[in-house]
């Protein structure tokens, strides 16, 4: 019971991070129907941006309040990652609209390789570690032999995720931008005919997805304290798994899928084998796509001729 509770807390924390990344996949897929393969690496870029900003604020500018630092890092990482994602869309994806079927996917794979190797060249291949941020924990339950703890940063991650998801939901449901987005999702040509600026909407979708990935990146950095140029790949695939599991194109699905993947991963590590945890995630991806391609909350795909 005590281990179960601890794993539940850890799983929800990890799941929040996956969910935030998964939204980027699912939004882009919903609006232009492509798997943005580079999204995982955009997330990795955001972790490095956060690391650099953190170092800049603490060592160069000498700010000591950790919450102020984290808030500034969050804003900087979101803005910069949004800019990166916007540029990627302009350079690598927009010229390919109307090209053959596999072109955007291949371009995205190229972009993913480009980003991770760019960071490797620019920042070096070694792990970059930070001193622990917010190391304090609350003991939630003490069974004598085992203490179930809830770290401050886990609370931070869940609160930030919840607040941002609410803000994001409001953006999509209640604002003109969200309306334009949903219109483009349903029928891009028709939306354009009715005066929606499709290019701008797609650009903004990429920026919002990247900003959410940047939030995940800042939280990931503060949770693990270590970043590496190759860190985009596995979290990226897992977040994509989350998006597929929840039903690609569905926003609540992405969050639920993210939490599920986070829980499955932590429970698998705790009760089965930690070596095969990535195998478990990859297998879920394959099984979901083969047997339930519409996911938990997605609409079944209708192929139009």
């Amino acid at each position: 019971m005590d281990i179960f509770l601890q794993q539940l807390i850890n799983g929800l924390t990890l799941g929040s991070i996956y969910g935030l990344i998964a939204i980027g996949y699912t939004m882009v897929f919903g609006i232009i129907g492509m798997v943005n393969f580079a999204h995982g690496d955009v997330f990795m870029v955001s972790t490095f941006t956060a690391l650099i900003a953190f170092l800049l604020l603490t060592t160069v500018l000498g700010i000591t309040s950790i919450f102020l630092v984290l808030a500034i890092v969050l804003v900087v990482a979101m803005a910069f990652t949004g800019l990166v994602s916007w540029s990627i869309e302009r350079v690598a994806y927009r010229p390919l609209r109307g090209s053959f079927r596999l072109a955007p996917m291949i371009s995205a794979i190229g972009m993913s390789i480009l980003l991770s190797n760019f960071v490797q060249v620019a920042q070096g291949p070694r792990n970059k570690a930070l001193p622990p941020i917010l190391p304090d924990v609350i003991v939630v339950w003490d069974s004598g032999s085992y203490q179930v703890t809830l770290a401050y940063k886990q609370i931070l991650i869940m609160v930030v995720t919840a607040v941002l998801l609410f803000g994001f939901w409001w953006l999509v449901q209640k604002t003109p931008l969200g309306r334009a987005q949903r219109a483009c999702e349903q029928d891009r040509k028709m939306a354009a005919l009715l005066g929606v600026d499709v290019d701008r909407t797609i650009s903004l979708t990429f920026i919002i997805g990247a900003a959410l990935a940047a939030v995940a990146g800042v939280l990931y950095l503060s949770y693990y304290g270590v970043v590496n140029f190759a860190d985009g790949f596995v979290p990226g695939v897992k977040a994509f798994t989350a998006a597929v599991l929840g039903g690609i194109g569905s926003l609540p699905g992405a969050v639920i899928g993210g939490l599920l993947i986070g829980l499955i991963e932590t429970f698998w590590s705790a009760y089965f084998s930690i070596e095969y945890k990535d195998v478990a995630a990859f297998s879920i991806l394959a099984i979901t796509l083969v047997f339930m391609p519409q996911g938990l909350l997605g609409r079944p795909e209708v192929e139009k001729v």
Binding site: V91, A92, L96, I106, S107, M111, I113, L114, N117, V121
Partner: peptide, 19 residues
């Protein structure tokens, strides 16, 4: 070190200009 960087860039560029 630059090998994969160039490969990635080339994949994007080829898709854009000479698919």
């Amino acid at each position: 070190l630059y090998r994969m960087l160039i490969f990635g860039f080339a994949m994007v560029a080829v898709m854009a200009w000479r698919p």
